[in-house]
Structures are given as C-alpha cells and as structure tokens.
C-alpha cells in the first residue's frame, strides 16, 4: 500500500469534498457573510487542485502561479464583497440574503 500523500487522487478527492462543502454552504445558509466564506472555501479547494496537478507535472510552475493569482483575486473579491454587504446592511439593516429582493418587484 503506497503511502497516502504520493498520489494526486487523494488531493483531487479532498478538493472535491471541500468544494462540495463550500457549494453546499453557499446554497443553504441564509447569512450573506457565511455565504462569502463558503465562496472562499470553494476558491481554496480549486487552488489546492491546481497546486496538486502542478506537482504531478513539475515541468513548469504555471499551476502555482495561477494559484497565486487566484489568491490575489480572492482577496480583492472578499474586500469588495464585504463592502457590498456593508452597503446592503445599511440599506436593509439585516444580513439575511432573503431581504435583498428589491429587484423582484
């Protein structure tokens, strides 16, 4: 039985698990902040996958570079997302995602 961490399958399985938990969280939870966190989890899952495959084909570092950029974008996204949540909170003084239904009328 070869040791656990030498095959990319384990990382793919882990990333899939993490990604589904993130997606699940995003769809189920009503709290906008938790939803944002779940998005972060999903992003991290994909980063893990990128790095794992880069490890599988080590000829160039594109996987890691790409992961690096994903982190940069995630940071920007989190900042703006939180700003929007603040604006939304000020408008509807609640973070419950169901209240954001002005467009519905």
């Amino acid at each position: 039985m070869t040791p656990l961490s030498y095959h990319v399958q384990e990382y793919v399985l882990l990333a899939a698990l993490l990604f589904s938990i993130g997606g699940l969280g995003f769809l189920i939870r009503r709290n906008v902040l938790i939803q944002l966190m779940c998005v972060e989890i999903m992003l991290n899952a994909t980063n893990l996958l990128l790095v794992a495959f880069n490890r599988l084909y080590p000829s160039s570092m594109t996987g890691q570079v790409f992961a690096f950029f994903v982190i940069a974008v995630a940071a920007a996204e989190a900042a703006v997302g939180l700003a929007i949540i603040l604006g939304f909170y000020r408008l509807r003084n609640s973070v419950h995602s169901d209240d954001a239904d002005i467009l519905r009328h």
């Binding site: 906008v32 995602s97 169901d98 954001a100 239904d101």
Partner: peptide, 14 residues
C-alpha cells in the same frame, strides 16, 4: 422563478 432569494438563483446557475 423570481423568488428574490440569491440562493435560488445560485441553484439555477449550478
């Protein structure tokens, strides 16, 4: 379909 909840839209996207 326009329930106004973000989640339903996300679910449809998925």
């Amino acid at each position: 379909f326009q329930t106004g909840r973000v989640q339903t839209y996300a679910a449809f996207i998925v």
